[in-house]
Design a binder for these strands. Structure first.
Lengths: 342, 342
DNA sequence: TTGTATGCGTTATCAG
DNA sequence: CTGATAACGCATACAA
């Protein structure tokens, strides 16, 4: 841990520390020769500037921090990948910070801001319904990506990229109705969900009503509390309940593709078939939905575009002081082989 | 960004900065009352210590950094989740740092060490065959998790957690041979792979030889360079090549579950069936392998145990100055419905 | 138990 | 173009 400092480099080069500093940050007013000499020495002794000291001095660092809640959600993987690429393209450094499901992302963010002095922040996943005031405390540009809030928030106070979860959910359930299904179940998140889980459920309800079907509470299968709700394991378990519930549902709409896949597997393991015995649809448009057998009928969220839009918006805000805005992307109904006409 | 500093807090409290510092870091020699008073003020003004300044002073910070190469690999998701939990259990903070596939993880690590002064490091993914000397430069405890190296490395110089990729691969191919398969193809990583891709290929070759089958180079389908090799998309594409290759293979062993799933889908899309027309096996034991239809025959790596072992080993090294060691876990052959006797 | 003063490694200001 | 030197916010040795 006895690493070499800028002073040492200066001594070795026989110059002042400020000259070394100038070489590092390639300032304009420095002799080209001296600069090369210094850089050479730095390379030889592989000196690395202490970033803590830098951040202490500098007002901001060229860093974007991504806070992610639910890192095991496969939906985020693709986004993170693109974030990383885009951020590197802008020659910023990219810090990924996991947020525990119990933590408040804004509190965590505040600390990291102090430490890293990042130029911008992306929040991925989580539930912001109760964090409105806290968000106001953030004094640097930030974008909520793929985060829904069921409450009304002041639209000038934040930026977001998302799909209209309720409308997309409505779209899917309408499609199922159009295929002749009358008894459509919903594989839901937890009952207390206040985010996308709730919105998708609302879309489901509304679609049924608009098709003159009275939603039956017994058609809704909530996730148990002891299991991550957006997982295949949960889908499997809930679908087992569906099959023993006595409800003669012909179709199931799952709150996510992972849940849909778990549900399919439960059907297979029961010796039945999808879509003959049950039509099953998902939400997200994960790669695996396409590669599954049968391919899952789903709502494809335009992940790439959304990720790109997220970084673009963030950098626009950083550079041009662009206004806060909420961008809503349209999902695409992708019909696979997991649903059928009845 | 006009945030409040320790001085301000001291002034407000009417005490010296050192007293505030003592309160924050709850030092023993401080009056309980003063301490509570200071803490109260801190809470009211929601003061957050500047970590850059702290790290600049302190020799080390209570942080573990996880470097991950290939964040979109679903195999890592579960591990990261456990890392996060364990690290938080130890009351350390957890920093996830993505490493671009072009970057050298050790170089990146060196910089982050300077900045964060972490107590330990975990490397996840990547290829360390050429970084041996560089690893020596790391002067804090680190563990390579799920990283294979094909070259010989000095076993006292590093710690690692992994499975014996070659042996496990051998196990799977032997199983396929035992099921009567004679012509077994391999869906490989890239030809220049020097890590797990190579080891798994070596295991495949050895198993064939030991079963008196001469490996035919035309049975090996390498990933194209323009695609991520451990993906479903790659599996799909390679399997299409298999089907038009004229090689009448009866079984395919894929370098990963994702690749196996892509391959299955290609078979289905060609109007054929798994395992009737082709037996297909994977490697990793992802959740999706179990939930796929048919369930993928695979080698299950004990992810949880491995992740737990990784953190345990790291903390042991941090605390007890435990010796470097290489822990090799045994994989489990999980027979699904994607393979059959021939 | 508490306060004061010093230095951690950098960058930026200001004379040279 | 270059070199002292003063901050940056905090922890800590030392003095009280």
């Amino acid at each position: 841990m006895d690493s070499i400092t800028i002073k040492d480099v200066a001594k070795i080069c026989g110059v002042g520390v400020s000259t070394v500093s100038r070489a590092i940050n390639n300032h304009p007013d420095i002799n080209e020769e001296t600069k090369n000499m210094v850089l050479q020495v730095i390379r030889e002794h592989n000196y690395i500037p202490n970033n803590s000291a830098r951040n202490l001095k500098r007002s901001v660092s060229r860093t974007i921090v991504v806070f992610i809640k639910g890192i095991d959600n496969p939906f985020f993987s693709a986004m993170i990948k693109i974030f990383g690429e885009e951020i590197q393209n802008h020659r910023y450094s990219f810090l990924l910070h996991r947020v525990d499901s119990g933590e408040n992302e804004v509190d965590v963010a505040m600390e990291v801001i102090k430490e890293k002095k990042p130029k911008g922040i992306i929040f991925l996943g989580g539930y912001f319904s109760h964090s409105q005031k806290k968000l106001g405390q953030l004094d640097i540009p930030f974008v909520l990506s793929t985060i829904a809030s069921t409450e009304q928030m002041d639209r000038n106070r934040f930026s977001s990229i998302s799909v209209d979860d309720m409308a997309e959910s409505y779209k899917m359930v309408s499609y199922l109705c159009g295929q002749g299904h009358k008894k459509i179940g919903f594989l839901a998140a937890t009952p207390d969900d206040e985010s996308i889980g709730k919105l998708r459920l609302m879309g489901y309800r509304k679609a049924l009503l608009d098709h003159n079907i009275t939603p039956d509470p017994r058609w809704i299968f909530y996730s148990d509390e002891d299991i991550e709700c957006y997982t295949m394991g949960n889908g499997y378990r809930q679908m087992q309940k569906v099959m023993t519930s006595g409800q003669d549902l012909t179709a199931l709409f799952a709150v996510s593709d992972s849940v849909a896949i778990g549900a399919c597997k439960a059907v297979f393991d029961a010796g039945k078939s999808v879509p003959q015995d049950y039509s099953i649809a998902g939400f997200d448009g994960l790669d695996i939905a396409r590669y599954y057998n049968p391919a899952i009928t789903t709502i494809r969220q335009p992940v790439e575009e959304m990720a790109l839009a997220t970084t673009k918006l963030l950098f626009d805000m950083i550079r041009n002081k662009a206004q806060n805005q909420q961008k809503v992307f349209k999902g695409e109904l992708v019909v696979g082989q997991s649903t059928r006409t009845v």
